[in-house]
């Protein structure tokens, strides 16, 4: 029992609250240049310029969309060829058994369909969602993130993390409310 209780009280990270878009952008720049790696910014809406401030690279979702689209188009063409020209060919109106033109509209629709699934699933996969348990979601104050507040969270697992130093950095960045969240 004592073991589990020590485990639950293990800190997850330090949370600093900001109230404006400019202050969170500035804070993100500071935290980034301080050399932290396991940290994130939480905002009610995507803040313009934040990816650059955090030093994030271009999202990889596009690859999922592309692969989905290619699979969709290829499966459409192959399916139609297999069904109408190979497995059970029937002459209809003297039209060719298989033509890329008549097979295009359904294959195009499948490109879109699979590409859309690729985008959504890729986005969820890259974001590790669905994840219904998250230490931050237990925090009462943090729930304002979907309302009107902005947060910087630096995880305790970060090699540069030290409770005193990190707190001082976030205070310098202009945060008025800083607390340590438990895992």
């Amino acid at each position: 029992m004592t073991e589990t209780s020590t485990q639950t009280s293990k800190p997850y990270g330090i949370v600093a609250e900001f109230t404006t878009a400019a202050s969170i952008l500035h804070a993100a720049e500071l935290v980034r240049s301080a050399g932290f790696r396991q940290w994130d910014v939480f905002t009610p809406f995507p803040v313009h310029g934040m990816d650059k401030a955090m030093g994030l690279r271009n999202s990889k979702v596009g690859w999922f969309t592309f692969v989905g689209g290619v699979i969709g188009y290829a499966s459409g063409m192959i399916m139609i060829w297999y069904m109408n020209a190979f497995d059970y060919p029937i002459v209809i109106g003297g039209k060719p058994m298989f033509s890329p033109y008549s097979a295009f509209p359904p294959s195009f629709e499948l490109t879109i369909l699979f590409g859309a699934f690729g985008s959504l699933i890729g986005m969820l996969f890259l974001n590790r969602l669905p994840r219904l348990y998250h230490p931050l979601l237990k925090n009462k104050r943090f729930s304002l993130v979907t309302h009107d507040r902005f947060y910087v969270v630096i995880e305790c697992d970060d090699p540069k993390y030290s409770e005193v130093e990190t707190r001082r950095l976030l205070e310098q960045a202009g945060s008025r409310h800083i607390e340590v969240v438990e895992d």
């Binding site: 994130d40 905002t43 994030l56 979702v61 959504l120 890729g122 974001n127």
Partner: peptide, 13 residues
């Protein structure tokens, strides 16, 4: 959670 790493992928998607 509104994480910016998530927003980045979300906006792209």
């Amino acid at each position: 959670t509104g994480s910016n790493r998530a927003w980045s992928n979300y906006e792209k998607a």
